[in-house]
Every structure is written in structure tokens, then in C-alpha cells.
């Protein structure tokens, strides 16, 4: 049951882009075309889940036992940066086709605040389940990370679809490009507001 709450909440109710405002830069940057949006979503999904797993263990077994929580930010960002590099190298060797699909997005992901945001959220925030709340255990943290990135992908693909249509329309000069895109996201976020309260 708790897993279902986590999944629904992370994908719809607290959608990472449309209600938590994380990972906006790549969201606006690569959502011009549906195909790039899908590629980026795949890469983000992969990295967020892996990074959450590693930072969760790092926090649990290294930082907390030694009272080094104050190094959290610095340690997490380094782990994420190193991880992204490693994923890039490993993918290149093992699966060149996957690398071709995701490769160009990987370097961009280090500074995607969604990754660091999820990693920090998982180790600092209590989650609510019905009438009680507690920190996530490892399994729940992974599910949360996965569901969050699915939510990211969902928002990204929806938005890219809208943007492809927008590109074909006439818009006033001052609205061209980002302004109209932001207003579109606003309306999309308004629609997602309708999900609030279901868990």
C-alpha cells in the first residue's frame, strides 16, 4: 500500500516539474522535439534512480555513522558527477545503441537539480502515509526515485507534444519562444493541480 501511495504521489500529485519546480532548465531546454524529450527522460530516469541508490547508501553507512552530515551537499554532488561520468563510460562499452540514444544528454544531467533534489529529499524528508509519517527505507527510496523520474518523463513528453504544435502556430512577437512555452506549462500545471488530494 505504501508503495502505491509513493508512486501515485510522485507521478501525479507532487509531480517533480509541475509542482516541485525541479529540473526546469532541461525541461525547457530539450522539450522542442518529442524524440529528444523521450531520450532525455530515459537518461534522467536512469541517473536519478542510480544516484538515489548510491547517495542513500553513502548517507546511511558513511556520513551518518561518522557524524559527517554537514558534508551532505558536497558529497552528493560529487557522487552524482562521478556517477554520470561512469554511466557514460560504461554505456559506451556495453551498449553503444543505448549510448547513442542517451549519450548526449548525460553530461547535462549533472547540473539537473532534479537529481540532487531527489537525493536530498529522500534522506531528509519524512513522507506521509495516511495517518502516519516516517523516513523512507531503501526499497521505498528507490521506488520514489523511479516514480519521480517517470513523472518527469510524463511532464516532459506531454509538454514536448504541446510545443510541437505551438511551433506551427502564429504567436505575437513578444510571446515567441520561451514566454509562450512558460504560459503553456502554467496551464499544464493548472491541470495537474486537479490531482491534489487524491492521496
Amino acid at each position: 500500500m505504501e508503495y502505491i501511495i509513493i508512486i501515485v504521489s510522485a507521478i501525479f500529485v507532487n509531480n517533480i516539474v509541475l509542482s516541485q519546480f525541479l529540473g526546469i532548465c532541461p525541461f525547457l531546454g530539450v522539450s522542442n522535439k518529442l524524440s529528444t524529450a523521450t531520450g532525455m527522460s530515459g537518461a534522467v530516469c536512469f541517473v536519478i534512480t542510480l544516484a538515489t541508490l548510491v547517495t542513500y547508501l553513502l548517507n546511511q553507512y558513511l556520513l551518518v555513522p561518522f557524524g559527517l552530515e554537514f558534508l551532505q551537499t558536497i558529497a552528493f554532488i560529487l557522487v552524482i558527477a562521478a556517477l554520470v561520468q561512469m554511466v557514460e563510460i560504461v554505456l559506451k562499452k556495453i551498449s553503444p545503441s543505448l549510448y547513442q540514444a542517451l549519450g548526449i544528454f548525460l553530461p547535462l544531467i549533472t547540473t539537473n537539480c532534479a537529481v540532487l533534489g531527489v537525493a536530498i529529499t529522500v534522506v531528509t524528508k519524512e513522507f506521509t502515509f495516511g495517518a502516519e509519517s516516517h523516513m523512507l527505507n531503501l526499497g521505498q527510496a528507490i521506488v520514489y526515485a523511479l516514480a519521480t523520474s517517470v513523472g518527469y518523463g510524463l511532464a516532459m513528453v506531454l509538454f514536448a507534444g504541446l510545443r510541437e504544435h505551438l511551433a506551427l502556430n502564429e504567436v505575437p512577437k513578444s510571446f515567441k519562444g520561451l514566454p509562450i512555452a512558460l504560459i503553456t506549462v502554467g496551464i499544464l500545471a493548472l491541470a495537474f493541480l486537479g490531482f491534489s488530494g487524491i492521496v
Binding site: T128, E132, S133
Partner: peptide, 10 residues
Amino acid sequence: KSSTIGFGGP
């Protein structure tokens, strides 16, 4: 000190 669960969390 008394805690319950509100709408957005504890």
C-alpha cells in the same frame, strides 16, 4: 508538543 498529519505532511 503534539504532531498529526496535515494536508501536505506532518
